[in-house]
Write a protein that binds this DNA or RNA. Structure first.
Length: 929
RNA sequence: GCCGGAGUGGCGGAAUUGGCAGACGCGUCGGAUUCAAAAUCCGAUUCCCGCAAGGGAGUGUGGGUUCGAGUCCCACCUCCGGUACCA
C-alpha cells in the first residue's frame, strides 16, 4: 500500500496550483515595472499583449473566456523566458446595460452586484494561473478611471475636425481661424475652410465670422464640435428605455436582449465619427488584422463615390428649396431617370402637405408617411414589397429636360445620402420593381448583352438613349457626365459613407455621467477638467419605465441635477449661475475605448497616461498583439480606433492606430441535440442508445447530434470551475489549447480532457518517482531522446510564435511518450522550461523538486543545437507514377544520382522508365510507360 | 441576394505550403495488473475484399493542370460567420 502516494491526480493538482499562484503573487513574479522605475530593464524589447477585458456578469466565466486568455498567457510566459519586457494586464469592463438589468431583476444596486461579479471573475481567472500583472488591475467603474474617460470626452468636445487638414484640432483654433477669415460658416452652420487666405466666392448662405451675432458665433462653434448635440432619427428601444447606436441594432432588434427597436427623432449627443470615415478606411491597410474584420469595418463605413445632383422642382412652393438634391453612384444613367423618390421623413413631404399641388392626394400622402414613419425596422424588413404614394410634385430631369413625378416610398432611407433618389429602373432592380408596381416608364441607358434576359441591368456595357454619352462604357460615361454636371452647376462629385455619426448618449443609470451642464438658455457648458470626475449619484430607484418617451434616469436625482456653475466646476460662468447637469450617461463602449492606454500607467493621478509609459508601451505601432472575439469587429474595435485617432490628432498619443496586430479566437461551441423538425432538445434529456445513435429519453425518438452555441436553455454550458475541480487548471489550459487551431470554432467535449490529464500524469511520472515523490534522473543521456528534445524545443518555440498551440502540445506529448524510460537531470531541466508556459503549476512543482529555488517562470527558454535537428539517415519513398511502391533508407545528404540509383534498384523486372523525378531527402518518382 | 471562412477516419484534428494522407488526443477492440472494479500500463485501430500474404479505394461532388493535388484552376453542393432596399 501507499506505493503510488505521489501520483499526479486531481487532488494533487488542486493542492499545488493555488500554492504556486500564491508564490507568484508573493514574489511579484509577473509584475512588470514601467520605464523610469528602478526595477525596469531598459535593455529588453517590449511586448504589449492585450486580452479583451471581460464584462463581469453574475454567471461567472464561461469556457470561452479562458480560451483567448490561455493563448496570450502561453505566449507572454514564453516571451518573458526569451527576454522581453511583457505587459500583460487584466481589468473589468463594468459599466453598461446588462449589469443594470441584472440589478433591476435582483433589486440590488448595480454597484454592489458588479463588484461581486468582479470578485468572482478575478477569483476564477486567478485560479487558471494566468501571468497577469494584477498590480495594474482596474475597472471602468473606478472613479480614478472614469475620471479620465470623462476627460477624453472633454477633449473630443473641445475639438473640431479641420476638413482641409483632415485632422482634429482644438476648438480655440477654430475660433481663431474664423476670426482671421480663413474660414466661414455655411448655410447649414458647418465650418467652411478656405485653402487660400483670400476668400473668393462665398457660397450662398455662407457668412464670415464678423457677420454673426455673439449667439450665432457660439452656436456655430457648438455645431462644429466633434461631440455635439443633434436632432436625429435614432434607434429607440422602449424595452431598454434608451436610444442605441446603429452598431447596437441587429436585424431591427437590440444587440443586448433582442428587443424591438423603433426609429424616433431625438436630441442626443453624437460623435462626429463620420469626419474620420476616410482615415478609418485608409488606415486599415497597414494593420495586421484578420482580413475578414478589415472587410467588415470597411463595409460598415461603406465609402462610395458618386455625385450629388440637383433636380429642379417644377413650380415649387415658396417654402421649398428650388431643387431636389439626390445622391447617386450612377450619374451616367441620368438619362434613364424617369421619376424621383423621397424618403417618408424627407422635409419636402411636410412642405407638400402644407401646400399641396393640384395632383396631390393629401389624405393618401399623409396616411402613407404617418404609417411609414411609425413602422419599426423589423416590420420594414419583413415586408420588402414596394409601396409608395405620388406626392403631386414634379421635377425636371436636367439631362433630358423631361418633367418627371416625385414619389414618396419607404425603400428610400432618410439616413443615407440626401434621403432622395433619382430612380433609374433600367439599371436598378429596386427602381425596376417600384416602376413595375406603379406603372412608371422604364428607359434602358446601358445596352445589356444579347443573351440578357433579366430585369434591371447593372453590368458593363455601352450607353444608349443618352445623347452625348451614347456608346461610352460605364466608367467613361461617368467621367463625362460628371464633368458636364459640374460645368453646368447642376451637380458635383461626392464621396458618401454608410457610416453615421455615433450616437453616444444613453438614458440609463449605470454609465459614466457627462461632464456637461446646461444653463437656462439650454446652452451646454463643459465642466472644468480639474474638477473631474463628475461622480455618478446614488439613486434609490433606477428601474426604467417602459416608455415611448426617453426619460433619462438621472433626472430622478433632482438634487444632483440642479446645481450651480460654481459647484459643478464650470469656470466659464459666474459661480452662482443656476445650471442643470446632463442626465444622459455614456454607453458601455466608452470605458473600453481607451483602457489599453490606462494599463500602461494605471495609477497616474495627473495624466491619463504618462509620456514615458506611452512612448515605451504604445510607441508608434500601438499594442503588439490584441486577442479577443470577432463579435467586436465593428463595435468596440471601430469606436476605439476613432477615440485613438482623436487623441493622436490632439497630441496625446504617438501611434495613429491603437492595435497593430489583432487576432480572434474561435468560438467554443458545445454538442446539442436536434429533432427531425430542427427543434433542439436539452442535453440532459438525451441518451446515447448505441454508438453514434442518440435518442430523446422521454419519447425514445432518435435525435441528431449537432454543434451549437452554449446556452442555458440547451443545458450544454460547461462551467470551468467543474473542470478544474475534476482535473486541475493545467489540464484545462492544455485541453482548450489542444482542441484545434485557435482561430477556429471548436466543439467542447469533456471526454477529451482526459487525454491531456494523462499527458500530465506521464510527464510527472517521467520526472518523479511516484512512490517516494523524489525526482528521478537517468544516468546517461540517450542519443535519440536528446535529439528529440532539441526538436521539441524548436517546434514548440516556432509553434507558440505562430499561435499554433495544438501542434506545440502534440510535440510535447510525443516527447514524453518517447521518454517514459527517464531523462537526465539536464534534459528534465530543459523539458520543464518548455512545459512551463503551458502547464505552469506542474512545471513549477517539478522544478522545485529538482532543487531549484527560483521559479521556472523566471527561467530562460532552453537553447537548441541546430546540428541536433538534422538526421544522418532518412527514409524516402519510391513512387511509380505517383504511387508509393517502396521505402528506402538513405544517407540524409545523399545526392540526386545516389537516390535515383537506389530507387531504381527497388524495381522488379524490366520497367520502361521514361523519367525520374528526385526530391532530395523526400522521394523519388519513377515515370514508366 | 451579396461578402468572408470551412468541408480530411466513429469524433477533435495533423500534413514543413505541390512531394510518403491520417501526426497527436478521444473513443473502440485486445492484453497486462487486480479477488473485483476504478485508475494505470502495453498493443491494435481510414474503409472494402481476404484466415493470411496481399490487393483495391480514399481528403464534400464533377472536371482540369502536373511526373505527382488534401494543397493550384474551373463549375457545383453543404455548413458556419457577417450583412442586407445604403441609391
Amino acid at each position: 500500500m501507499n506505493q503510488k502516494a505521489h501520483r499526479y491526480d486531481a487532488r494533487f493538482a488542486n493542492e499545488i496550483e493555488p500554492r504556486w499562484q500564491k508564490v507568484w503573487a508573493e514574489r511579484k513574479t509577473f509584475e512588470q515595472p514601467n520605464p523610469g522605475e528602478p526595477a525596469f530593464d531598459a535593455g529588453k524589447e517590449r511586448f504589449y499583449c492585450l486580452d479583451m477585458f471581460p464584462y463581469p456578469s453574475a454567471a461567472g466565466l464561461h469556457v470561452g473566456h479562458p480560451e483567448g486568455y490561455t493563448a496570450t498567457d502561453i505566449l507572454c510566459r514564453y516571451r518573458r523566458m526569451i527576454g522581453f519586457n511583457v505587459l500583460h494586464p487584466m481589468g473589468w469592463d463594468a459599466f453598461g446595460l446588462p449589469a443594470e438589468q441584472y440589478a433591476i431583476q435582483t433589486g440590488v444596486h448595480p454597484a454592489i452586484t458588479t463588484r461581486q461579479a468582479i470578485d468572482n471573475f478575478r477569483r476564477q481567472l486567478q485560479r487558471f494561473g494566468f501571468s497577469y500583472d494584477w498590480s495594474r488591475e482596474f475597472g471602468t467603474i473606478d472613479e480614478d478611471y472614469y475620471r479620465w474617460t470623462q476627460w477624453i470626452f472633454l477633449q473630443i468636445y473641445n475639438a473640431w475636425f479641420d476638413e482641409l487638414e483632415q485632422r482634429a484640432r482644438p476648438i480655440d483654433e477654430l475660433v481663431s481661424e474664423l476670426e482671421q477669415g480663413h474660414a466661414a460658416i455655411d448655410a447649414d452652420g458647418r465650418v467652411l475652410r478656405f485653402d487660400h487666405e483670400e476668400v473668393r466666392d462665398l457660397p450662398e448662405g455662407a457668412r464670415m465670422w464678423d457677420r454673426l451675432t455673439a449667439e450665432e458665433q457660439q452656436d456655430a462653434v457648438d455645431a462644429n464640435r466633434l461631440a455635439y448635440v443633434g436632432e436625429q432619427t435614432v434607434n429607440w428601444c422602449p424595452k431598454l428605455g434608451t436610444a442605441l447606436a446603429n452598431e447596437e441594432v441587429i436585424d431591427g432588434r437590440s444587440e443586448r436582449g433582442q428587443h424591438p427597436v423603433l426609429r424616433k427623432p431625438l436630441r442626443q449627443w453624437l460623435f462626429r465619427i463620420t469626419a474620420y470615415a476616410d482615415r478609418l478606411v485608409a488606415d486599415l491597410d497597414g494593420l495586421d488584422w484578420p482580413e475578414s474584420t478589415k472587410t467588415m469595418q470597411a463595409e460598415w463605413i461603406g465609402r462610395s463615390e458618386g455625385a450629388q445632383i440637383d433636380f429642379p422642382l417644377v413650380s415649387p412652393p415658396p417654402t421649398a428649396p428650388p431643387a431636389l438634391r439626390v445622391y447617386t453612384t450612377r450619374p451616367d444613367t441620368i438619362f434613364g431617370a424617369t421619376y424621383m423618390v423621397v424618403a417618408p421623413e424627407h422635409p419636402l413631404v411636410d412642405v407638400i402637405l402644407e401646400r399641396p399641388g393640384k395632383r396631390t392626394d393629401v389624405d393618401a400622402l399623409r396616411a402613407y408617411v404617418t404609417e411609414a414613419r411609425n413602422r419599426s425596422d423589423i416590420e420594414r424588413q419583413e415586408n420588402k414589397e414596394k409601396t409608395g404614394v405620388f406626392t403631386g410634385a414634379f421635377c425636371t430631369n436636367p439631362a433630358t429636360g423631361a418633367t418627371i413625378p416625385v414619389w414618396v416610398a419607404d425603400y428610400v432611407l432618410m439616413g443615407y445620402g440626401h434621403g432622395a433618389i433619382m430612380a433609374v429602373p433600367g439599371q436598378d432592380q429596386r427602381d425596376w420593381d417600384f416602376a413595375k408596381a406603379f406603372e412608371l416608364p422604364i428607359v434602358r441607358t446601358v445596352q445589356p448583352p444579347a443573351d440578357f434576359d433579366g430585369e434591371a441591368y447593372v453590368g458593363e456595357g455601352p450607353a444608349i438613349n443618352s445623347e452625348f454619352l451614347d456608346g461610352l462604357e460605364v466608367d467613361h460615361a461617368k467621367r463625362r457626365i460628371l464633368d458636364w454636371l459640374e460645368e453646368n452647376g447642376i451637380g458635383r462629385r461626392q464621396v458618401n459613407y454608410r457610416l453615421r455619426d455615433w450616437l453616444f448618449s444613453r438614458q440609463r443609470y449605470w454609465g459614466e455621467p457627462f461632464p456637461i451642464v446646461w444653463d437656462d438658455n439650454d446652452r451646454p457648458y463643459a465642466v472644468d477638467a480639474s474638477t473631474l470626475p463628475v461622480t455618478l449619484p446614488e439613486l434609490e430607484d433606477y428601474a426604467p419605465e417602459e416608455s415611448d418617451d426617453p426619460k433619462p434616469l438621472l433626472a430622478k436625482a433632482g438634487d444632483w441635477v440642479r446645481t450651480t456653475a460654481g459647484e459643478a466646476g464650470v469656470a466659464a460662468l459666474d459661480p452662482s449661475t443656476p445650471v442643470r447637469r446632463e442626465t444622459n450617461t455614456m454607453p458601455g463602449w466608452a470605458g473600453s475605448c481607451w483602457y489599453y492606454l490606462r494599463f500602461c500607467d494605471p495609477r497616474n493621478a495627473d495624466r491619463l497616461i504618462g509620456e514615458e509609459a506611452e512612448a515605451y508601451w504604445m510607441g508608434e505601432r500601438g499594442v503588439d498583439l490584441y486577442i479577443g472575439g470577432a463579435e467586436h469587429a465593428v463595435l468596440h474595435l471601430l469606436y476605439a480606433r476613432f477615440w485613438h485617432k482623436v487623441l493622436f490628432d490632439l497630441g496625446h498619443v504617438r501611434s495613429p492606430e491603437p492595435f497593430r496586430k489583432l487576432f480572434h479566437q474561435g468560438m467554443i461551441t458545445s454538442y446539442a441535440y436536434q429533432r427531425d423538425d430542427k427543434t433542439l432538445v436539452p442535453i440532459d434529456q438525451v441518451e446515447e442508445k448505441s454508438e453514434g445513435v442518440y435518442v430523446e429519453t422521454a419519447t425514445g425518438a432518435e435525435v441528431q447530434r449537432i454543434t451549437a452555441k452554449m446556452s442555458k436553455s440547451l443545458k450544454n454550458v460547461v462551467n470551468p470551475d467543474d473542470i478544474i475541480e475534476h482535473y486541475g487548471a493545467d489540464t484545462f489550459r492544455l485541453y482548450e489549447m489542444y482542441m484545434g487551431p485557435l482561430a477556429d470554432g471548436k466543439p467542447w467535449n469533456t471526454d477529451d480532457t482526459v487525454g491531456l490529464y494523462r499527458f500530465l500524469q506521464r510527464a510527472w511520472r517521467m520526472a518523479v518517482d511516484e512512490s517516494t515523490g523524489e525526482v528521478r534522473y537517468a544516468d546517461a543521456a540517450d542519443g535519440e531522446i536528446e535529439k528529440k528534445l532539441h526538436r521539441t524545443i524548436d517546434k514548440v518555440a516556432r509553434d507558440v510564435e505562430k499561435l499554433s498551440f495544438n501542434t506545440a502540445i502534440a510535440a510535447m506529448i510525443e516527447f514524453v511518450n518517447a521518454a517514459q524510460g527517464g531523462v537526465t537531470e539536464n534534459q528534465l531541466d530543459r523539458f520543464t522550461r518548455v512545459l512551463a508556459p503551458f502547464a505552469p503549476h506542474v512545471a513549477e512543482e517539478i522544478w522545485s523538486r529538482m532543487g531549484r529555488t527560483e521559479c521556472v517562470s523566471d527561467a530562460a527558454w532552453p537553447a537548441i543545437d541546430e546540428a541536433m535537428l538534422k538526421d544522418d539517415e532518412v527514409e524516402i519513398a519510391v513512387q511509380v507514377k505517383g504511387k508509393v511502391k517502396a521505402r528506402i533508407r538513405v544517407a540524409a545528404d545523399a545526392s540526386k544520382e545516389e537516390l535515383e540509383k537506389a530507387a531504381l534498384a527497388t524495381l522488379e523486372g524490366e520497367p520502361n522508365v521514361v523519367k525520374v523525378i528526385v526530391v532530395l531527402g523526400r522521394l523519388v518518382n519513377i515515370v514508366t510507360r
